[in-house]
Design a binder for these strands. Structure first.
Lengths: 191, 191, 191, 191
DNA sequence: TCGTAATCGAGACGGTACGTCCCGTCTTTTC
DNA sequence: GAAAAGACGGGACGTACCGTCTCGATTACGA
């Protein structure tokens, strides 16, 4: 349906605009509807809640813009990936949206599942693929890097810093976080 | 005048009870007041917001119960510390309260500051002291463990798991998290 | 959009019922909303305050029921008019509502203006028309009855008795008040 | 008790000051206590309610200042009496206090009784004495002026104007009201 | 080309919690 | 040991949004 998809886009854009202006928590469905030039019901027709809408908003913001790094060693590519992500967080409300979503996830199992399946697991392979491309898997007694751990530490640190010190997500932080995540995942081989 | 310490205690207890029953987000000041047998104003007199009240609740829950580990090597003491913490999260609403607080911190700079100064920084030294007790500091080119990184990775991983999979914070998770945090903080000496 | 006239009626009826039960001053918007089966906001949407709502309630009560007298001389028609009014005051909370409104008018200029324009001036012509129908206007030196004075004395006496001795507004009082008001307004011609 | 009477006076003065500043309805016991430099309890010790306190305030304001007229005919003495009263209403919050009291009387039978016994009946004789001094009583068929009616019409008109148009209580209004009240009370003898 | 049905904006609605205000009582502290 | 200072339980205030539910106006399609 053409008409629907125009509205759909208008609602996402309005949500981004209002979240940017008012912050995630202060964003109301009413305000989004008004900015989108749409009735409240039209939003509820497609999304059951603010959170559901913003999960899509987050994916929209990040997917549209997150360019994967191309060359270099593991550490530099990971750093570049984070730098791109942090740039998005600085230029759009994506970071604040993410924290808001994590916040609501804590109170609502449905959102928790969608968030964990969508944003966490869904995006995990970007990182794990990157790791696997560069580092040999852990086989037997040989040392290696566990891609899952890289991803979990990465996600955890980004969330924590978004929540506690959202202003300090700059290029330097990206390198620091990448370093910590890689160190955390390095497994020594048994000699 | 002076706050009545009986009321004070009754309000904290009521907050714990209601948060346990209804979850942090669904906990209302009105419900706490009713359970505590207290007027709403009495709560607002001493705490400016639900978050402020629950920061105290969290500290109350954790401080009263968190016994520091005593013996063993760094890894096992850290693991034991986390196991104690996770036990509290299982027996009380402290974990859900913490996640709720982090959630609100994302929307409110005041809470963010109090949370980061109180619960994060305030509790940091429990971990950093533990690390310093066992591991030599990083001096010059010698390898060592950075206590701050241990703490940050610990906090980040605990928060993330509380938010995403609060049910799986068991003894095994404690060991796993402790291992990751120590690995993350190990710095190789330059040979 | 448009207000639902069903709700509108339900709210007026609930207000009458609650005022009758609890008295004007003890009537709360919350109680009216509950009795009307309506959200508080629905009342605030259409009336800015309790007073505004009750001005409409008063008009509703009196307008729906106040039948003008038909035949007889001035004195008897005026008496009958008052008797009808007092009957309303006995059967409905209209009298207590009026006194409550006058009370609030004293503290609030907006209400004062609405009350004085609506209930006082708006209803004045019922009396003045009656007087003009029977009595020759005051022309030159001839004696006559000033309709405005009749009305003002009437209103003042009714209010005062409502405030001080609301139980004694019976048929006898109607005749007495009518007599005083007519006497007050009789102007002697200059001989 | 000397100490008491000083406080007593301080409370009355504070009540006058606050009522003048904030208006009767917005005056709180707390504010009076603060201005008087007195605990709330001290006020409640002597007066059961705001209304009771202000009945005394009203009597204090009017009794201390209302000088009875001395010479002239009935009409001019009555006019002068009202002019004095209206001067008090312009210089002090007495008028606003009176209207506030009448307002509360409508909701509270106790206050109604005290008000009607104290301010209305208690002050009635000032007017009735004045009338009796000048006008022969109504005896048999002879014409005369009924002092009670003079008083009631006077009181009613003053209250009504205080409530509806408190700004227009000037010397002219005094004369007008006196005229109406005397006309209302004049009884024709049966010839 | 038009009438009719579906769609959609606008926003009214019942409801819940908010944070504030002030009441009249009770408690603590100070002088 | 009285009284100021003010904490307290209580209850209404008026506001903000929630998610649902009308209501007309606007569309867009089938006749």
């Amino acid at each position: 349906m053409k008409r629907s998809s125009i509205k759909h886009r208008a609602i996402l854009d309005a949500a981004i605009e209002v979240a940017d202006r008012d912050g995630y928590a202060s964003t109301t469905i009413e305000a989004i509807a008004a900015v989108a030039g749409v009735g409240k019901q039209t939003i509820y027709r497609w999304w059951p809640s603010k959170s559901a809408l913003f999960i899509e908003v987050y994916e929209d913001l990040v997917d549209r813009r997150l360019l994967t790094a191309r060359t270099g060693n593991l550490s530099s590519e990971l750093t570049e990936l984070l730098q791109n992500l942090f740039r998005i967080y600085r230029q759009t409300p994506a970071g604040r949206v993410l924290v808001g979503l994590v916040a609501e996830a804590s109170a609502n199992a449905d959102i928790r599942n969608v968030l964990s399946a969508g944003i966490v697991a869904g995006r995990a392979e970007i990182v794990t693929d990157l790791v696997r491309k560069h580092a040999p898997p852990i086989v037997g007694e040989l040392p290696g890097i566990d891609p899952e751990i890289v991803n979990e530490v990465l996600v955890a640190l980004v969330w924590k810093r978004l929540a506690i010190a959202p202003d300090r997500l700059d290029d330097e932080a990206a390198a620091e976080i990448a370093g910590i995540a890689l160190a955390a995942a390095r497994r020594e081989g048994v000699l």
